[in-house]
Amino acid sequence: MRLAITGATGFVGNAIRHAAMARGWTVHPYGSRTWDITKGPLADPPEVDAVVHAAAAVTDWGDGKAIWRTNVDGTRHVLDSFPGRRFVHISTASVYDPCTPAEYATEDQAPVTRYLTAYAASKAASELLLPGRPDTVILRPHAVYGPGDPTLLPRVLKAIRGRSLVIVGDGQARQSLTSLDNLVQATLLACTGPPGTYNVADETPVILEEALCALLDERGLDVRIRHLPLKQAWALAGAAESLWHIAGAHRPPRLTRYAISHLAYERTLDTTAAQRALGYQPAATSFKGAATWLDDQVNRLVPTARRSGRRSPVTGRQRRWATR
């Protein structure tokens, strides 16, 4: 198998790259330094059997035009670079309706017509580029986590104040999380499996507060979880977003409606289609090893930071609650 991977230096793409190489596949990895997908098609694309498109602007805040250029124009450029090849598109469960709970959502329930962020809208638009290309697989994971996690764990840790972590709602919303290993498994299966759109998630959903407690316990943190009423949080988030936009802030407020929509409401996915068509066999949610996940991130992105004795910029960098 000859495979091209975009976003191959990122959290998801890098894991796919290593797993494919472990299978003996020939891999052509592309990161932003080797190919800026916003600028146009690849000048001299290699002969491949399949393309995994993992590159994306994953953020719930920022320049909407720049996000659109990466997620929509960039996807179009990758498609143009590899005509007639199997195309595996790493999308997101953010394409489902953000304003209503998702209860074991099936693939036919998205895209929708309303979104809270340019990220979600652009990922939905990128999916709409694909129906005319028959040999295509779309994967929709939710809340991807694992070694090197650049989003979920850093944001949880950043939200801790003293020994307290405030979450919106009663903490009992069920969530389908997606381990990095499960997403990698689904992606490799998609390289040769039947075309289609497939949800990707862990074996069974988890209760948000229970999952957070398990994650914090694995990190060895004694943190009390407190609750903010949903209606109050939604109003505060809307007001904060308006003020931040007026001020032209480059960083998001601590609370956004997008984050609330993914954490306070049920977000569960039906993975029946992936299991039946692709042979996907998801493992259960597990945070084992989470104590070293940020170290894994540093080692992957800034391998010289520790050797030089300088503090790595990675763990201090602003991260977003934009979840795939």
Rank of each mutant, 00 (worst) to 15 (best):
R311F: 11
A305N: 05
T204Q: 12
A240V: 07
A237S: 11
P154W: 09
V184I: 14
R254N: 05
G84Y: 04
V200G: 09
S94R: 05
R257F: 05
L116W: 04
D60I: 02
L221M: 14
A50V: 15
T6G: 10
A4G: 08
C213K: 03
K39N: 10
P45T: 12
D135W: 04
L42P: 02
G238I: 04
A159L: 04
R300C: 05
A20V: 11
G40M: 05
F11N: 05
H77P: 00
T315K: 08
W234P: 00
A240F: 12
V206G: 06
I5F: 01
E107C: 04
T100Y: 06
D170N: 12
N71I: 13
V144D: 05
G193K: 08
V206H: 12
H245R: 15
V78R: 06
G248R: 01
S308L: 12
A211F: 11
A264S: 10
K39M: 02
H262P: 01
H18Q: 02
A273Y: 13
Q109W: 00
L116Q: 09
H77Y: 11
W25G: 00
T197F: 01
V168F: 03
T117V: 03
P229S: 11
D36K: 03
A284C: 06
T106D: 13
K39P: 00
A54Y: 02
L243C: 04
C99F: 15
T106G: 14
T38K: 04
V137I: 05
V112I: 15
A55E: 00
R163T: 13
Y104K: 10
D149Q: 06
P141H: 09
G31H: 04
R300I: 08
G220C: 13
W25K: 07
N71M: 14
D149H: 03
D181S: 15
W293Y: 11
G84K: 01
T256G: 08
I260P: 03
A4C: 09
E107F: 07
R300L: 11
L129V: 07
T178R: 10
A249V: 11
Q297L: 14
T271V: 14
I225T: 15
T59G: 04
I67M: 05
R33T: 14
L212M: 09
V314N: 09
V137T: 07
A201M: 10
T136V: 15
R85M: 04
P41M: 00
C191P: 03
D36H: 02
T113E: 13
E203T: 12
L180P: 00
R267F: 04
M21T: 10
T192Y: 09
A264R: 01
C191V: 10
Y96G: 01
T59R: 10
T285Q: 01
S261E: 08
R155F: 02
D80W: 00
A290I: 10
L183V: 03
V168K: 02
L221W: 02
T136N: 01
T113Q: 12
R174A: 13
W244G: 06
A105H: 04
D170S: 07
R254S: 02
T271E: 12
Q172D: 12
A283H: 05
Q175N: 02
E218F: 08
A190M: 13
R86G: 02
R324Y: 09
L157W: 12
R226S: 07
E209V: 08
L236V: 08
V156C: 01
W68L: 03
L301A: 12
H250L: 06
G24P: 01
F87S: 09
I16K: 07
